[in-house]
Every structure is written in C-alpha cells, then in structure tokens.
Simulated scan of single mutants.
Amino acid sequence: MEDESKSRKRTSGKLRDKERTKVKMVQAVGKVLLKKGYTGLNASAIAKEAGIDKSLVWTYFGSLDNLVEEYIAQRDFWKYKAADSINNILTFKDGIKEEYMSGLFQFQFQSLLDDEILQRIMLWGISEKKDFLRHLSDERELIGEEIFKIIDPQFQNSDIDIRGILAILVAGIYYLVLHGKTNGSLFCGIDLNTVDGKIRIKESIAQIVSMAYKKTIA
C-alpha cells in the first residue's frame, strides 16, 4: 500500500509539472510576440523564453502552430474576453436590446485598444495565411452566428441589413485601433490615443447601433 501511495504521488507530481510547463510555454508565446512580433515567433525563441527544451513544443502540443493557437485562443476577444457578455446575450430569446449590442462593441473597442498583444494578433491575422489563424477566425464566425440567430428576426421586417452594418462596425473598430496604435496618427482628425478620442469613438459606436435599431419595424 505504501509503494502504491508513493507511485501515485510521483505520477501526480509529474502531471503537475507537465501542466506548469505547458502554462509557461503558452505564456512564453505572448512574451515573444510582444518582443519580436509574429515574425520572431519560433520554437527556439519560445523555448528560450520559457526556459525549456524546444522538443517539448512537439511533445506537449504536437506542433508549434498548436501551441500558438492555444495562446491566441486564450487572448481572443470573442472566445475569451467577451465570453461572459456573450453567454449572457445568448440567454435572450426575444431579441437583444440596443444597449447590450452597443456595450458589446464598445467593450471590443476598449479591449483591443488596451491590449498590445491582441493588436499584434489582429495584424498577423490579416498579414499572413495560416491554418490556425483561419480556424480561429472561423470560430469567431460561429460565435457571431449564435448572436445573429437572436438578432436577425428583429430586423427581418425592416430595410436594415444588420449583418452588413455590424460587419462594417467591427472592421472599423479593428482598423481604427490598429491605425492609431501602429503609427499614432490621426484618423478623420480624431486621436485615439487621447481620452477625448476614445470617448468620441465609443459614443459613435452607440450612435451607429442606435440608428439601426430606430429603423426597425415592430
């Protein structure tokens, strides 16, 4: 019995060590991404940052892409940061109120604005063709479809193309933040790196959503 107990403890200890190492490796992806950008993201750089042998990338994750995908999934706005807000919205069976939609996109704007790593991930996603980046994009679309199942009926008797409007809104948020944070320049005279600029964009997001809702036919 004593030998069995010791064996279980050793096994448990190894599993804990493995999980701790995997966490370190995932965290190392973000550190390398921040220091070197996505072009510097390779197994050697990640292993050095994590203080482990690079062979563990394949041992624990199967491939470098799988490791990077694990990290990005944990930072993604739609899959991770907004998960609680989206889960709450998905409980609404009779439509989504205007303030919830405005709040969601204002939250997206602020989250992207505050997260340099997320900005780099978004730049990567539109700069390079990678299977795991496409996979994550497809997963975002699936989340979006769940929201549209609820909101589409609210606009079906109106002349509002809510999908088109929200596509432009989301794309605009991405571009404004990446433009303002990458080179710090103004856009339409608005500086996103100032408090006033951030407030103006948040208020404009609410105005766009409000205009769409006001044109719906009950």
Rank of each mutant, 00 (worst) to 15 (best):
E4Q: 13
S5I: 15
R8D: 07
R8P: 00
R8Y: 14
S12K: 07
G13W: 07
L15P: 06
R16M: 14
D17A: 11
K18R: 15
R20Y: 09
T21E: 04
K22D: 02
K22H: 01
M25W: 02
V26F: 03
Q27D: 15
Q27C: 09
A28G: 06
V29P: 04
K31L: 11
K31E: 14
L33H: 03
L34T: 13
K36D: 15
Y38P: 07
T39F: 14
T39V: 13
T39S: 15
G40E: 03
L41A: 01
N42Y: 05
S44F: 09
S44W: 07
I46N: 01
K48D: 13
G51A: 04
G51N: 03
I52E: 04
L56F: 07
V57C: 02
W58L: 09
Y60W: 00
N66S: 07
L67S: 00
E70T: 12
Y71D: 00
I72R: 00
A73K: 04
R75Q: 09
R75V: 02
R75P: 03
D76T: 02
D76M: 06
D76G: 05
F77V: 01
Y80V: 09
Y80L: 07
K81S: 12
A82G: 06
A82P: 14
D84P: 09
D84C: 07
I86V: 10
N87W: 06
N88T: 08
F92D: 11
F92N: 11
K93W: 01
D94F: 05
G95L: 09
E98T: 08
E99P: 05
Y100T: 08
S102K: 10
G103E: 03
L104C: 06
F105I: 00
Q106C: 10
Q106I: 11
Q106W: 10
F107Y: 15
Q108V: 04
Q108F: 15
Q108S: 08
Q108G: 05
Q110G: 04
S111D: 13
S111A: 13
S111C: 11
S111G: 08
L112F: 06
D114N: 12
D114S: 10
E116T: 09
E116K: 09
L118S: 09
Q119E: 12
R120A: 06
R120W: 03
I121A: 00
I121G: 01
I121C: 01
M122Y: 15
W124C: 01
E128D: 05
K129R: 12
K129W: 01
K129C: 06
D131A: 14
D131Y: 12
D131P: 07
F132I: 05
E139N: 08
R140G: 01
I143E: 07
E146W: 01
Q154S: 12
Q154M: 15
Q156L: 12
N157K: 10
N157R: 07
R163G: 02
R163V: 05
G164R: 11
I165S: 04
I168P: 00
V170C: 03
A171L: 10
Y175P: 00
Y175W: 14
L176R: 06
V177Q: 02
L178S: 00
G180Q: 05
G184I: 09
S185K: 12
S185C: 07
L186A: 04
C188D: 14
G189I: 02
L192S: 05
V195E: 10
I199K: 14
R200K: 13
I201G: 04
K202D: 12
A206K: 10
V209I: 13
S210R: 15
S210L: 08
M211L: 11
M211I: 08
K214F: 06
K215R: 15
T216Y: 11
T216K: 13
I217H: 12
I217F: 11
